[in-house]
Design a protein around this nucleic acid. Structure first.
Length: 153
DNA sequence: GCCAACGTTGGC
DNA sequence: GCCAACGTTGGC
């Protein structure tokens, strides 16, 4: 059982969008960074905990809890010619990009980035590291438990 | 809109 | 394999 923080721009997919999807599940398409891809392809397991994080918005922070469901599979958007996420070097036989499905567990209060930054127990989070841009980062079980206490009434 | 930081690309 | 140029991320 591992834990992850996954960034999504709410202008693309917000926590409320996720809540409205069938099975409250979304395929995590569009990742085009090898390190983030490797986390999904090689390390994620069904049942892993996910912090759903809103980035590039007015109030960045953790907006809800989710979980990994199912096994990784090729990101279909890499084959969509002319579309944003098309990759001409990817083929169905040799796909380059992978995704997992992520299901909402519950929407929470917003745990703002500023609150994460000011919490002594969360200083080691990758999200706070200078220059960090990875859209998927591991979260320690201690950090996960700390955050549960902060967001659960 | 700014800009620091980082990843990728491509010429050599 | 090096590295300059370029594009992207994401908080502010």
């Amino acid at each position: 059982m591992a834990y992850w923080l996954m960034k999504s721009e709410p202008s693309e997919i917000s926590i409320d969008d996720l809540a409205s999807f069938p099975d409250q599940t979304v395929g995590w398409f569009g990742v085009r960074n090898y390190q983030a891809r490797n986390f999904m392809r090689d390390q994620m397991q069904p049942g892993d905990g996910v912090l759903f994080y809103h980035s590039s918005c007015a109030e960045p922070g953790v907006a809800g809890l989710a979980e990994v469901v199912g096994a990784p599979y090729p990101d279909p958007t890499q084959f969509e010619k002319g579309e944003k996420y098309f990759d001409e070097k990817a083929t169905p036989e040799v796909p380059r990009w992978f995704q997992v499905d992520v299901r909402l567990v519950k929407k929470t209060r917003l745990l703002a980035l500023s609150e994460i930054r000011s919490n002594p127990d969360l200083q080691e989070m990758r999200i706070l590291a200078k220059g960090n841009r990875l859209s998927i980062t591991p979260v320690s079980s201690f950090e996960w438990r700390t955050i549960q206490k902060l967001i659960n009434p």
